[in-house]
Design a protein around this nucleic acid. Sequence first.
DNA 1: TGCAAGTCGTTGACACTTCAACGATCCGAT
DNA 2: ATCGGATCGTTGAAGTGTCAACGACTTGCA
Lengths: 153, 153
Amino acid sequence: MDEVRWLDATEQEAWRAYLDTTRLLIQTLGRQLETDAGISFTDYELLVHLSEAPERRMRMRDLADATLATRSGVTRAVTRLERAGWVRRVECEDDRRGMHAELTDAGMAKLEKAAPGHVAAVREQMFDLLSSREVEQLHALCARMRKHLEAGR
Amino acid sequence: MDEVRWLDATEQEAWRAYLDTTRLLIQTLGRQLETDAGISFTDYELLVHLSEAPERRMRMRDLADATLATRSGVTRAVTRLERAGWVRRVECEDDRRGMHAELTDAGMAKLEKAAPGHVAAVREQMFDLLSSREVEQLHALCARMRKHLEAGR
DNA sequence: TGCAAGTCGTTGACACTTCAACGATCCGAT
DNA sequence: ATCGGATCGTTGAAGTGTCAACGACTTGCA
């Protein structure tokens, strides 16, 4: 039965600032994409992952890992995106259980149309406010946390 | 028609690291609270805000601002928490439209029971991995971003 | 004082996500 | 070769969040 090591005032402030900032940022980016491009942040990111994959296609499972969502979440997202015409399902040759989600030309076009506004918003709300030194520091610290978080999963 | 200032490789890496880390962190903390204390991260935070307020009560609207949720979101959360016995609604004296959400003794007890594990998890996944210098830097940079985000509503 | 405009909390409708369970399929040890 | 245990993607059920609209109430201005 160890003592609890509470957060001191500095840590608490940092924690709240981090939490609030992140939420505001994600809300803001989501709203920007929604109103300017008519796509949700989640769907946008899924398309980004596909666009960066070889042949613009990924296994459902890998898509789940990449987006940090569940398999069922990806199933439904892909259904949604398929209905919009931005993604198509392609059966897997080497694994008959498997499915690929493949970015269509329309999906790529959608992405190219949405990206500039999104990147501008990310810049405006984040990178334009940070020195390159701060970006490095943030990156380092996040990478360290991510490694730890992934280990304990 | 301005040129798009894309993110360079360093910025992209930092951006992904930040996004993934944040999601993993929130998922992990949520899971910890859910399994060890039987409460969601959202509900936990709402209770924390109440516990820090004078008389352990807040107007619904203020609660919405504090938690960065919508008024309707708070309405439903409070209904949920009221059903669990952790919060009670109290009518407002000076504004007959108004409602207070007030932390009950049971709610305070719940909070005191859940807090140690939560704080330990926050330490383990975050503050134990950061030097105090890094905490300061993160705080500074988040505060700057938050201010900017709040300005743009 | 009276009234238009705004704010408060709630609700219905809907969107998105997760969990648990499922049938189908793959794989490794025997 | 087979068989038990894993993995794959999907589905139903349930939970949680948002938006738009509402009635109730307050506020500011003429």
